[in-house]
Amino acid sequence: MKVNQQFRPESGEWECAKCKIPLQPGQVKLQYLNNSFTIGVLVCPQCRQALIPEDTATGKMLEVEQLLEDK
């Protein structure tokens, strides 16, 4: 998974349900089996929650998880 690669939901206008403000591009650090990556996702600028889109979780993230599991 490339650092700073951008991942967005396929559709929708997303906001934070708690803070009621639109999400904006940000970064999240992902960790698995002593490896970590930083990728670009939508985040809530106030409460700092990150949105991991479905196709990212079931696509690229799954692929990298499996690669790391076989290391």
Partner: peptide
Amino acid sequence: YTAYSHRMEIGKVSAEESA
């Protein structure tokens, strides 16, 4: 509508677009 999962743990979140 949908449900999905991942095993990677979500760490620090930053509101900056690039580091």
